[in-house]
Design a binder for these strands. Structure first.
Lengths: 188, 188
DNA sequence: GTCTATATAATGATAGAC
DNA sequence: GTCTATCATTATATAGAC
């Protein structure tokens, strides 16, 4: 009795999508149970810390996904322009062409910021710093690169919200398309 | 027995700040009760429709505030540059220099989008259209004006999220400062 | 128009059988 | 490792006294 119903990694990936769609407060253990196929009680076997521990695991696994799709392309070989091109592809894929929310943005506005402020701040910083480094390689000075990097991250967050509010992802797509050129403007 | 404890308009304004801080799912009737000083039961006297009716009133009153502070300045007399200057002041005031969240953005990511999709979409559209009109007056063609307007609204949404995630409002302030020139770039 | 008291459902969480 | 059963708490909402 009691064969594993789902691999832990697969469970966390599914749960992550629930958090991104419904926010921290909106993600109930019942929803998590439904998504994973595990009974509410079984969830406490895998995650004794309950909802908070589940959320921390979601941050961890999502952070890995983001690293592979969004951070790593910025640190690979190639010109800054080439690296930003791969970065855009990773961003587009991670957000499913604008249909999926950002875990960070959603957490910020749905009850997660109070509980995980350090995790959220560090995740934003990691993304901004990787972008900044690429822009410095392109010839921008540190301050200007950092400012443009923050702006790019913010524009993606905002584009996701506006696209969601307007009911279509066109604005997200347009924003993503022009971002590399705008980031490198004057330094191409 | 039963003298009014708080004016309806004042109550709704306070409740609006609760929704903007805690999101739709995070705003409980207990929180609303605490903010207004009204018992939970009394809230159903003023708002028989419960939490959903309260949220609709919050949308309505906040929409009025936004109209006065953010939309109206775009429709007043003056050059486009002057109007955008007043617009920035209104935006800065409405978001309390970046310390207060946007009701729309927060609702989108905290459970409100499913319940009030039309209200949210129309509110975004109203803001975008007013900005678009000002940019058309500055000489931009309709399509480019609309695109820049959407981008400006998205950048404000994103700047609020990133500022909140990083724990300070500097990015919001910088974003707001450069927005008018960027909106009019090439048409000053 | 306020309040106390209550109804009902859902929440996060635990105990213990298998 | 899963499940059923249950717990205490909180949620939205209602009834009726004053």
């Amino acid at each position: 009795m009691g064969a594993p119903k789902i691999a832990r990694a697969e469970a966390i990936k599914r749960i992550a999508l629930v958090f991104r769609k419904y926010g921290y407060d909106g993600t109930t253990l019942s929803l998590i149970s439904k998504t994973t196929g595990l009974g509410r009680a079984s969830l406490y076997h895998h995650f004794p810390g309950g909802k908070e521990e589940i959320a921390r695991e979601v941050f961890r696994v999502t952070g890995q996904q983001v690293y592979e799709l969004v951070i790593a392309p910025l640190k690979r070989e190639g010109t800054p322009k080439e690296r930003l091109g791969e970065w855009v592809k990773g961003v587009d894929h991670f957000y499913a062409k604008g249909r999926n929310n950002c875990l960070l943005g959603t957490m910020v506005l749905s009850g997660g910021l109070n509980r995980f402020p350090d995790i959220i701040e560090e995740a934003f910083q990691a993304w901004i710093e990787a972008l900044t480094h690429t822009l410095v390689d392109a010839g921008l000075d540190e301050a200007e690169a950092c400012e443009r990097a923050r702006s790019a991250v913010a524009r993606i967050q905002g584009a996701l919200i506006v696209s969601r509010g307007l009911g279509n992802e066109d604005h997200f797509q347009k924003t993503l398309k022009i971002l590399p050129d705008q980031l490198l403007e004057g330094f191409k």
